[in-house]
Design a binder for these strands. Structure first.
Length: 564
RNA sequence: UGCCCCGUCGUCUAAUAGGCAGGACGUCUGACUCUGGAUCAGAUAGUCGCGGUUCGAGUCCGUGCGGGGCAACCA
């Protein structure tokens, strides 16, 4: 885990915590929390927040809670709760026995609301949602007081209690904080605290028909759990004054909210809403589609938890709205996978090679290194015989100057095996090359020529008779543009990359691939990092491409105008 | 024509309490190599503008410009 041995990052949040520790603001405690709403799957943006919150707790010897902000039963479900628990655990974090649900605090929240009503700081409003909007004013114009704003405490108490008992239909009444309808911060214009929702809750059943709003609930949740630093994203900055107001009116424990910029990544979308749209429309294959930036999707794609943690740690934390390059993510993934992935050989688009001077029916085994970065991974035997497959892209009949691979009359090395030279091509009726005739040099077993002659390329290969058939799913960027949301008036779906998934059937792998288990991560030499998908069948594995290897040749081709 | 927040290489991010603007990714060179992988060496490129304070400003003050957020009974 080289990526995690980097020094602990410094950022403005840790500076604030250092300062609070110095001034003994919270008696030297550091207690954070990760508070997702169970209304979708977690994505890499959440991973940033998870790493931040759990990471800070770890570094300071504090604690981090996992708390579900389940205040809106119309959008939430237990399935989402489970997927979130699964994702956080997979990322490698532990919340001990501190798994909490906002819904478990509903009684206390209700009592506190009654408290506010008693203090004349909250009232029951009969305005409709639409009217509330009208009375709120605009960004530049002050709002007006609701005609129900000055009801007596007794009447408010009675009405609120009857709301709770279910006497009123959905939307007919709300409980509102009594603050200031002319406040320059819109959030302070008598925000709604409770709405009536005759909807059963995935944990509370039908116990409630009034549910707290985020602004009212969230600060209370943090207060109840004695959180010291409530870390959240920038869009809640304007809500902090309200969060503070509630806590001060109630006179309860007061955490410090700190906002940071959410993660944006190029070539993808990072909002649960957009992700949900893609899933619902069937534009991807579920929440764990390997093309999605969901944690479940990236996991299925083959990203390791360590690489995701390394990425999150090293992108830093700031208040500047930024977009991280997808290249950076891939860099950390490759960095980790390079060190940890066993190497195997597989040919994705097979081209048959017949070694004319190799005895028919003979098979030998060559020794291959499992991981050049980790000698302790040992070696393995790979069968070699007269008929082989190599990659179609590794042969060109009339190669350009910079093409180093096999061509008529040219000699290359077969990895760990022999030097071979191409002596001819065999075509089908349509003139397509279907087979290469080659000779091998028996003196080069293992790959080195006794006379010291060099070759410019080493190719991966498999023995036709011993190969295992497999399917590969080649994933590419989900969108064709860096910011799919960036074009005014265009829907982000217009920029979906039609080539984001290419299924390659008929791949041939060396036999040892048959011993892999689901989710095992490997590198197919020269082709990229892959992992075994759960769709694999016995004897016919399915591989997801996690990332390609850096490919200098592909870069040259792209730059020099692809003459292939 | 309101309020809040933010502007450092192409990108992300450092610069302990004002003191040589550094790192990473990307890109480009080169070395090495039985993965055109990995590794190594080098190059590239930045403090949004204008004033002010100061011996000294990315950092402090003012102002302009630019970007983001806010008008759900969502979070």
């Amino acid at each position: 885990m080289a990526s995690e041995e980097t020094p602990v990052p410094r950022d403005f949040i840790r500076d604030i915590i250092d300062e609070d520790l110095k001034t003994k603001r919270y008696d030297g405690r550091v207690h954070t929390r990760f508070p997702p709403e169970p209304n979708g799957y977690l994505h890499i943006g959440h991973a940033k927040s998870i790493c931040l919150n759990f990471g800070i707790a770890e570094e300071y010897g504090g604690l981090c809670n996992l708390r579900f902000d389940d205040t809106n039963p119309t959008k939430e479900s237990e399935d989402y709760v489970n997927s979130i628990i699964d994702s956080v655990r997979w990322l490698g974090f532990d919340w001990g026995d501190r798994l909490y649900f906002a819904s478990d605090y509903f009684d206390r929240m209700f009592d506190w609301a009654v408290d506010l009503v008693r203090k004349g700081k909250a009232y029951v409003d009969d305005l409709t949602a639409e009217q509330i909007g009208e009375y709120r004013g605009t960004l530049t114009l002050p709002g007006r007081n609701s005609p129900f704003r000055d009801r007596s405490v007794e009447e408010n108490l009675d009405l609120f209690e009857r709301m709770r008992k279910g006497e009123f239909p959905d939307g007919s009444k709300t409980l509102r904080a009594k603050i200031d309808m002319a406040h320059p911060n819109m959030n302070m214009r008598d925000p709604v605290m409770y709405r009536i929702l005759h909807t059963s809750h995935h944990r509370q059943g039908d116990r409630w028909c009034v549910y707290p709003m985020y602004d009212w609930a969230h600060g209370l949740e943090d207060s109840i759990e004695a959180i010291t630093h409530s870390i959240c994203t920038l869009e809640f900055e304007n809500h902090r004054p309200l969060y503070d107001w509630f806590i001060d009116q109630l006179g309860i424990y007061h955490p410090q909210q700190i906002e940071f910029a959410r993660l944006n990544l190029t070539y993808t979308v990072m909002s649960k809403r957009m992700l949900l749209e893609l899933v619902k429309a069937g534009l991807v294959n579920g929440w764990d589609d390997p093309r999605l930036p969901t944690i479940a999707g990236m996991r299925r794609r083959g990203y390791s938890p360590a690489s995701m943690r390394g990425f999150c740690k090293r992108i830093g934390v700031a208040k500047f709205n930024s977009t991280v390059s997808f290249d950076l993510l891939e860099h950390y993934v490759r960095e980790d996978l390079n060190m940890t992935s066993p190497r195997l050989m597989a040919v994705f688009r097979p081209l048959k090679v017949v070694l004319e001077n190799y005895p028919e029916g003979k098979t030998e085994e060559v020794e291959a290194v499992n991981n050049p970065e980790a000698p302790s991974a040992g070696t393995r035997k790979v069968p070699f015989s007269r008929v082989l497959y190599i990659e179609q892209d590794d042969f060109m009949e009339s190669p350009p100057k910079k093409f180093f691979r096999l061509a008529p009359g040219r000699e290359v090395r077969l990895r760990y095996a022999y030097l071979i030279k191409c002596t001819g091509v065999v075509r089908d009726g349509g003139g397509r090359i279907v087979e290469l005739r080659c000779t091998y040099d028996p003196a080069t077993r293992g790959g080195d020529a006794p006379d010291g002659r060099k070759v410019k390329a080493t190719l991966h290969w498999v023995s036709a008779a011993h190969a295992l058939e497999a399917e590969a799913r080649m994933y590419d960027k989900l969108f064709t543009v860096e910011n799919p949301m960036g074009e005014a008036g265009r829907d982000f779906r217009e920029f979906l990359n039609p080539a984001s998934l290419e299924v390659v059937a008929g791949c041939r792998t060396e036999p040892s691939a048959g011993r892999l288990g689901v989710m095992d991560r490997i590198q197919f030499e020269r082709m990229g990092y892959f992992c075994v998908d759960r769709d694999s069948k016995l004897g016919r594995p399915v591989f997801n491409r996690t990332a390609t290897l850096k490919d200098t040749w592909a870069k040259i081709q792209a730059r020099d105008g692809a003459d292939s």
